[in-house]
Design a protein around this nucleic acid. Structure first.
Lengths: 233, 233
DNA sequence: AGAACAAAGTGATCATCATCACTTTTCATC
DNA sequence: GATGAAAAGTGATGATGATCACTTTGTTCT
């Protein structure tokens, strides 16, 4: 697919300071592709090394274990990119990527990507920061898996989802509410456990399920519940 | 501490192709420090952002949970570096670092580090690869924690330790044998569980404990034991 | 060689959760 | 508004493994 009209790498912060000419050149070197919802963009077992930039749409980074269990990592939207690990080290794909809605991506050759980022400090720096963030998030998740029980991991996930909207009155909102199985995939537990935890929290008046959003009535309380166990033994 | 005689960044592969003059300049910009065994080099709670290069010695990357539980990440030796995450993004320290033996490090200012790596493609590339590797390893660990039981994680760790020495006759050697509590810290389980797993494996004739090393009699068998469960459900 | 301490081995117990097997609710669509 | 199909809720059950409380074995140091 040739570069669609109106589409470009202009919306990708990574290339914000690279210069218009160079960015246009890169845009044309990319292979532009559209994917529909549920369509797989990267297969974990595929032996490719392109780096993908999202021009529009939304994708989910995920690994399916042999058992079919889903381990969710992240969701990315316009302006973000994925496939950079294989692009950097030419290794195997570490995860699969699935489109969640109609998505337009620019697939860049690994060599082009590496040339560009290594020779442009304005790219190298944000890319390094991006990778550092990935390592930090993974480390935090390892910590959670190592020190928290399943229930507390759900609590911790609710806190993560709610934190952005935390009000001075100790209230927060999660909207839209992810489906339980997605939460389960993110904290490595069973869908039923998520349901039970939500039930308990609602019982205790800590959260309340409204039609299209979840109201967290007592953010601090929830935070205590997680920390208690962390320090417990 | 000024740069000790005989010490330099020459032994750091990251700077292998940076040019002698530049490397010497960097060496002098570093603060050189010695640490004794058990001494903490980076405290997880400290608000610093230096990047450390190991000229000699050995260090362990580790996080202690509030409960005192130890979560082990890696051990690094001469030529390797740590503290790069905070150096890159100026964020908090993600883990603590402890010297395991007498260790000489060069501490480099975050700004100097970032300037150097962003402006030298010969540094940027290996650093990116290094970070990609960290993300991959963390992802694998998350997979293990999410899909394997504690026993199988110990099996998987034995495989990791043994793989490098795998012989054509399906035999391998681990030397020296890490103490059980270290293995436990690396796979997030209890010391007792590690002891029990070793007991079972010895019983089954799959491994054998010799004076100073562990003999893996049947590497394939052990591999099957891990995969069985991965694909089981 | 013995003392002192670290590491390893082991049984008993108990809490946590994954899993199974349904039922009930909600949602999307015709 | 009916009809499937997802999603959510829930009880029962069983396996796993963390924890506790020792004992035994190894190491190191003087």
């Amino acid at each position: 697919m040739s570069q669609p009209t109106g589409a470009s790498l202009n919306t990708i912060p990574l290339f914000a300071e690279i210069g218009d000419a160079e960015r246009d050149r890169l845009s044309q070197l990319c292979s532009w592709r559209r994917y529909g919802p549920q369509e797989q963009i990267i297969d974990r077992d595929a032996d490719t090394s392109d780096v993908y930039f999202i021009a529009e749409g939304r994708v989910r980074i995920v690994i399916y274990s042999l058992s079919g269990r889903e381990i969710a990592f992240d969701e990315l939207v316009e302006g973000q990119y994925f496939g950079e690990l294989a692009g950097i080290d030419r290794g195997r794909r570490s995860a699969s990527v699935v489109a969640l809605r109609p998505t337009l991506v620019a697939a860049m050759n690994a060599a082009t990507f590496m040339d560009t980022v290594c020779n442009n400090p304005s790219c190298a720096k944000p890319l390094l920061q991006h990778l550092a963030r990935m390592v930090r998030r993974a480390t935090d998740r390892i910590m959670d898996l190592s020190t928290l029980g399943a229930n507390n991991r759900v609590h911790a996930e609710i806190l993560r989802l709610a934190r952005a909207t935390l009000q001075p009155d100790n209230t927060a909102t999660i909207k839209p509410i992810p489906v339980h199985s997605d939460i389960a995939a993110r904290v490595s537990t069973a869908r039923e456990t998520v349901a039970r935890v939500f039930g308990q929290l609602a019982q205790a008046g800590i959260v309340e399920r409204r039609s299209d959003h979840l109201l967290v009535h007592d953010f601090d309380r929830l935070e205590e519940m997680v920390e208690e166990v962390r320090g417990d033994f």
